[in-house]
Structures are given as structure tokens and as C-alpha cells.
Design a protein around this nucleic acid. Structure first.
Lengths: 261, 261
DNA sequence: CTGCCGCTTTGATCCATGTCAATACGATAA
DNA sequence: TTATCGTATTGACATGGATCAAAGCGGCAG
């Protein structure tokens, strides 16, 4: 279904009316960090009451996106960061020759758009994998405010740094792990992130296709599918399409630490 | 020579006297951004005279490292960033099971240590690949000063963001490219970075071994060596050990853009 | 100069994953 | 209900890179 540059994605994109700079889905409901349940995951973490009020005034609007809609595209001018409120995103990079790769999946409380700061333009595409909502954080104002609020400055730096560390792990995965290790690492990571958000650690719904998982893990979709089947045979997980149950998390971890060869 | 966790590296490490927290090579010569020729590559880029003076007072000391010496290790408490003044570094991550991977090579003007901000501890090792010198930038003071100097804040954010984008490219490389494409990308990247520092774009000396290149590119050293040989046969480059001459940069670029299969 | 050691090159073989192809499944629309 | 379309599974086969092994090379210490 892929091969020639994701025709399906392009088509579904084209089918959506939102090609203009001002998306139809930009709603004016103000975000309110002070009210937000994602506190401890977001850049608002640990701020005092007064500081939260300031942050509220900065975080502009929320923006709603439908499944398959782009939050931004590679090349778009960079203006704001986005905090995922609800839903699920992927980021991907497209090479001139048509090859692309998913570089990350983002869920509630995670920040999107930091790739754009360095060049003032986004370097990847961000796409909603289900109907989603983000808080828009105008970057100039974030910098302004983080010059005033030390804790905010620190939070922001930490978020960026953790992203660097996350990238390191992904490099490690892509550079040294075999297919089944990669998938085990992926599942454990998903589980851990769902858990941190109060969902079941052992049962979840994947929002992405096998192809997207494969792209993220540097594998072909058939390899991902086979690894899922193998895990199921071995009683490590129960798979039913996108619904996953982890039956033996320890077993998955063991798979990771087993020296290759 | 690898397989069991880089014994050679460990040995050469052990041979060095510097295992203590205070390295023998910590010299007290003050760094001076205002005098530094790496301006346009470093976080001091674009600062005014007065601002540079403030930065000078912040940038603590320089620190000299001998070949194979660690600038920091995974787990070390994070206190400062380091700007490479002279020399050449690698960063690498070590998995519990002994596998490791080089996550980057750093040269003059590039910043090391940002991985530590998020957790207050470094997440990788930084090792000098030749005798080197860094400027020590105490992080708390950098944050302090970047609350005062907008341009410094902006520079720092840009440096971090560019690191994120660099990581994206590396993921792309590790996830989608074949061996020869990876090596071509690596050589072109080296050339470009040497060029930006005023060295010859077509002729340079690699400071790292084939094994380190392979680790960085997700390949085995034999594969790297074979790719070098192939490039030489095809007249793209001239290799003599670590000395590389690019004979046909365009040819290398073509290799990159050629769709695989 | 000689010998050693780390690094590199090259060859032969193996295997994990990619590729190609057929089929199955599940949701949605007609 | 049936047709359709995107997605997922499974099988057969091909292949790029890993692995194992053997020289070759160059620098450094004695």
C-alpha cells in the first residue's frame, strides 16, 4: 500500500478541506493550564498558582484536529509549540526520493513542534492519528515568559532535553536491535506511557497501522506483523488487530536484555 | 575485537590516571567568548559586545582532555554544558547487555552535555578522540544569563532544536538507508562540517575507527570497510587509512538520492 | 631494526529481514 | 445482504549485511 510515497495518506489529506493557513478547526476556546489534568506531564509542571495564571494568558487557543489532519507540515513557518491535550499524533519526515519515516508518536501531555525552533521552520510533519486537541503555545511568548519564570524556563529545557534522550534510545534501537527486540521495546514503551496517563498498563489500543509501527522501528510491515504473531504464539501478548494485551511483561523485558547472538 | 563490550576501550580508559571527579587536566585558563574564533558556530553567535563580556564571566574554565579521556560518563551528575574549542569527541550509550552505540561525533564549536538537563544526570559518555579542549559552561549560570539576554536564550534554544533535527536525520539514516547510502551521508556530513570550519571540503582526516563509524551508522566495521573500498573502486573517494579525499562529491550525493530498489 | 598490537581489508558463508504474492479480516457503504 | 477498501496475516523466496576467519598494514616500544 505504500511503496510509492504513501498515496493513501495523500488522498485522505486531499479529501480534507483544510489546506489553508487558517484551519477550519481552529477554535477559540482558551486553554487553561491551571485547570488542566495533564499538569505533571506538561511544561506547567510544578508551577505556582500565580505563575500558572501567567501561563494561562500565554497559551493561546486550543485547536482541534480530525483524524489524518496535519497539525503542521515540514517547511511551515515555526510560530508555536503544541501540547497534546487529547488524542494521538505521529511525526514523520519525508525524503525527496519518496522514502519516509515516522520519527515519533505523541500522546496527551507531550509537546510537539520543537524541531522548528532552530530554523524557524518545521522539519517534519505532525499528523493526528485520531481526532485530537492541542494547546497552542506561541513560542515568542513562551520565551518571554520563561525569562520571567525560572521554573517555566527549567521545565521547557527539561522537556527538550528529554526529547534528546528519547531520540538517543531510538537510535540505539534502530542501530543495534533485532526486529523482535524493537517491537518488545516499542510495546513496553507504549505500556509505560499509557500507564503514566492512568490507563491500563497491560491493555491498550494502538492508534497506528503496522506500517507506521514498522516505519518508526525501521522495519517492514510484514516483519512487524510476524513479530506480533510470534509474541502471541509464545504467550507474551494477545493481539487482535490494534488491540493489544500484554500477558507477560517480564518476558518482553527479558527479550530486550538478551544479548543478541 | 568488540563483541564483549569494548574491552579495548575499557583498557585504554583504565590506563589513564583520570578516574577521579577532578580531572588532572582541569586547567584554570579562563575561556573568553569575546576572543573566540568559533563565534558564529557557538552559542555566542550574534551577541553584542557588552553581552559577550557577560558571557565571558559565565564561561568558567577551559578543560583539556587527552585522547581517549572521558569528558563525562553516563550517570555523572549534570552541572555544565561544554563547548568544544579544539579537538574531536564522540558520545556513546552503553546498554546493560554490553551493546553500545556511538550517538554522535562533535567538533569545534559544537555543544556537549545537553542530554543531562532533563534528568540532572548525563545519559551518555563523551570521549575525546584526540587531545581536545572544551569551554565549561555552568548550566545554572547559563540559564540565569539567558533570562537576561534574549539573544543568548534564543541561541541556546536553537542549538538544542538543531540537535533534535540532527537526531531526526540520523533516525532516517538508520531506519531507511542501505549501507552505502549511510556511509555516503556520513562522508558528506563530515565534509560539510569541516568546510564550515574553514578546512578543505574534499580532504580530511577521520579521527574515529571503522568500528566507531560502523557503530554510529548501525553497521559492522567490515561493512564500513567494504563500502569504503567500493567507493574507491568507483572513483568516488580516495581512502588511505583514516585520510579521506572526496573525488566526486556529486557522485556521493547521487548515491543518496537514488531510490532503493 | 624487529616484533607486537591495534586497526583495516578481504574472502567465504549464513541468516534475518526484505520482497513479492496470495489470502483473510473488519469496517463501511450500497 | 454483498461489494469494496484499507489493513493484516502468512508463505515462499531473494538478498544485504552479519559473522567467522585469515592476512595485510602501520605505528610504536624495546
Amino acid at each position: 500500500m505504500d511503496q510509492s510515497g504513501r498515496p493513501s495518506e495523500r488522498e485522505s489529506e486531499a479529501a480534507l478541506p483544510n489546506k489553508s493557513a487558517v484551519p477550519v478547526s481552529l477554535v477559540t476556546i482558551k486553554a487553561a493550564c491551571s485547570q488542566c489534568s495533564l499538569h505533571e506531564l506538561c511544561i506547567s509542571e510544578g508551577l505556582g498558582k500565580e505563575e500558572l495564571a501567567k501561563l494561562d494568558s500565554l497559551v493561546g487557543a486550543r485547536r482541534k484536529l480530525k483524524r489524518q489532519q496535519n497539525l503542521y507540515r515540514a517547511g511551515d513557518p515555526f510560530e508555536a509549540l503544541y501540547a497534546v491535550r487529547t488524542g494521538f499524533f505521529k511525526t514523520d519526515v519525508l525524503l525527496e526520493d519518496g522514502r519516509d519515516q515516522v520519527t515519533g508518536f505523541q500522546m496527551a501531555g507531550e509537546i510537539l513542534g520543537m524541531d522548528g525552533i532552530g530554523t524557524e521552520a518545521h522539519s517534519c510533519n505532525a499528523v493526528a492519528l485520531e481526532d485530537s486537541e492541542v494547546c497552542v503555545i506561541p513560542f515568542a511568548q513562551l520565551e518571554q515568559l520563561s525569562r520571567e519564570i525560572q521554573a517555566l524556563q527549567r521545565n521547557f529545557h527539561k522537556v527538550m532535553s528529554r526529547e534528546l534522550v528519547r531520540d538517543q534510545s531510538l537510535m540505539m534501537l534502530l542501530g543495534t536491535m533485532r526486529a523482535e527486540e524493537r517491537l518488545a521495546a516499542f510495546l513496553l514503551n507504549m505500556s509505560q506511557r499509557f500507564t503514566a496517563r492512568g490507563y491500563s498498563p497491560a491493555e491498550f489500543h494502538l492508534r497506528m497501522t503496522r506500517e507506521e509501527i514498522g516505519s518508526y522501528l525501521g522495519l517492514k510491515l510484514e516483519t512487524v506483523s510476524r513479530a506480533f504473531s510470534r509474541f502471541q504464539e509464545e504467550g507474551l501478548i494477545a493481539v487482535q488487530q490494534k488491540h493489544i494485551r500484554l500477558l507477560d511483561g517480564e518476558g518482553l523485558k527479558r527479550l530486550l536484555n538478551a544479548r543478541p547472538r
